[in-house]
Amino acid sequence: MVKKGIYFIQKLSGRFSTRKNRRYQVKPLWAKNLPGQNDHLSRPRNRVALIKQWLAMKNSRPQQSYRSARKTKKRIVLTGTATIAVTLFLIFFILDGQARLRRAVESITMFQVSELLITGNGIVADQVLKDASGITLYQTSLLVLNKQKLKDRIESVPWIASAEIVRTWPSTVEIAVQENIPLALIHGSAKTGAEFYYMDKNGVSFLPVTPGGNIDFPVVTGLAELPEGSVRQKAFAEVLLFLKKVRGNDPHLPLQSLSEVHVTPEGEMVVYLVDYTFPIFFGNGNTGQKYARLVQVLKALYKKGKGSNLISEIEYIQMDYLQDKVLVAQTGSE
């Protein structure tokens, strides 16, 4: 009986202590509710099951971290700032911003042109080229100087064949030019409104002759009266070849001794000298060979003429008399 009484007391006290402890007991991590589960959970049987429940709880949370959210926010801020900057830039240029920027650049004293150098000119005066350049000292900025436009302005001067522009920082511009060198004066047609033009070595007429201009050049006549076509083109080519040969300034036939090169209606060339009035008939074709023969003929005439004045008695010279033959006709000869 005693043993049964002790056993009953121990069992009763054990139930009491268990209920008391459960009142203050906190649910362990594995016992917390998971999404979609009831409050009643059974204790995991092993450690593997406990880890699986913990991972399920972790995966159920939002995946975006604090750092990722911060980067996204920063990207949005930068994109918005760039858009605002581009918009303001466009508005600035629309509202005359480009002109204001140009004026601001031109106002930098350090880069304003303080020296303009002209080289290579002999016919055209320095001031003419400076005026054509459009550069104003201490106003035009080297920063905004357009070299191509400046080159075009200089080459628009009739006597200028080409120009090269060199910028020397911070404030110097050098213009090196090559001038058109007249080879002859060519007679123009009535349609051109001018009597004569300066012609360069390429046969290009680049400037009308004005009163008081330099006319110390051979004169080409008769070409303007020829109709357009092969005859005129061939005759012009022969005239140009002859002038280039004479430009070599052989002592017996220098360029300054040549007065006129005339082209007949048939397209044949006739040459006149400054000091003598007799004609030299070149015909048409083989101008290079005929020039060489003429030099030899004049050399012989000048040599024999000492004391006898033989060349003054010449009536005409015919370069195409016969093949490889030159006819020198004297006054009074049959």
Rank of each mutant, 00 (worst) to 15 (best):
248 G>W: 12
181 I>E: 13
283 G>I: 01
218 P>I: 14
242 F>G: 02
256 Q>A: 09
288 G>A: 04
218 P>C: 14
225 E>D: 07
260 E>K: 10
232 R>G: 00
201 K>L: 09
246 V>P: 00
204 V>I: 11
208 P>V: 14
206 F>V: 00
283 G>Y: 12
229 G>H: 07
182 P>C: 01
223 L>E: 03
212 G>L: 03
210 T>C: 01
263 V>A: 08
256 Q>S: 11
230 S>H: 07
282 F>W: 12
237 A>W: 15
215 I>E: 11
217 F>A: 03
202 N>P: 02
290 K>G: 01
253 L>G: 08
188 G>Q: 09
220 V>I: 15
276 Y>M: 14
284 N>E: 07
265 P>D: 12
189 S>K: 15
216 D>I: 05
240 L>I: 02
282 F>M: 09
174 E>A: 09
205 S>W: 14
251 P>E: 03
271 V>P: 00
249 N>P: 10
257 S>M: 06
259 S>P: 00
234 K>F: 04
278 F>L: 14
223 L>A: 00
207 L>G: 00
263 V>M: 08
259 S>Y: 05
232 R>E: 01
255 L>T: 05
193 G>V: 04
233 Q>H: 07
246 V>Y: 10
237 A>I: 02
197 Y>F: 15
254 P>V: 05
246 V>I: 13
221 T>E: 10
282 F>R: 04
251 P>A: 01
220 V>D: 02
185 L>C: 08
228 E>M: 07
229 G>D: 10
215 I>S: 09
272 Y>I: 08
265 P>F: 15
250 D>A: 05
283 G>W: 12
214 N>E: 07
273 L>D: 14
193 G>F: 08
202 N>A: 01
182 P>M: 02
274 V>N: 14
206 F>Q: 02
191 K>R: 12
181 I>C: 03
202 N>W: 15
183 L>V: 03
240 L>A: 00
270 V>H: 13
210 T>E: 12
287 T>N: 06
243 L>N: 03
258 L>F: 01
234 K>N: 08
259 S>F: 03
282 F>Q: 02
228 E>D: 04
221 T>I: 05
268 E>P: 06
211 P>R: 15
233 Q>V: 03
193 G>I: 05
191 K>Q: 07
265 P>K: 15
287 T>I: 12
177 V>H: 10
240 L>Q: 09
190 A>E: 13
241 L>I: 06
177 V>N: 06
178 Q>A: 09
268 E>W: 07
248 G>L: 13
198 Y>G: 01
182 P>N: 06
277 T>P: 00
200 D>V: 02
286 N>R: 10
283 G>N: 06
263 V>T: 13
268 E>R: 15
289 Q>W: 05
221 T>W: 02
272 Y>S: 08
173 V>D: 01
204 V>P: 00
275 D>Q: 14
217 F>T: 03
205 S>H: 08
274 V>Y: 04
223 L>R: 10
266 E>L: 11
185 L>P: 11
286 N>C: 02
290 K>Y: 14
282 F>G: 06
284 N>V: 01
178 Q>N: 11
190 A>T: 06
287 T>M: 11
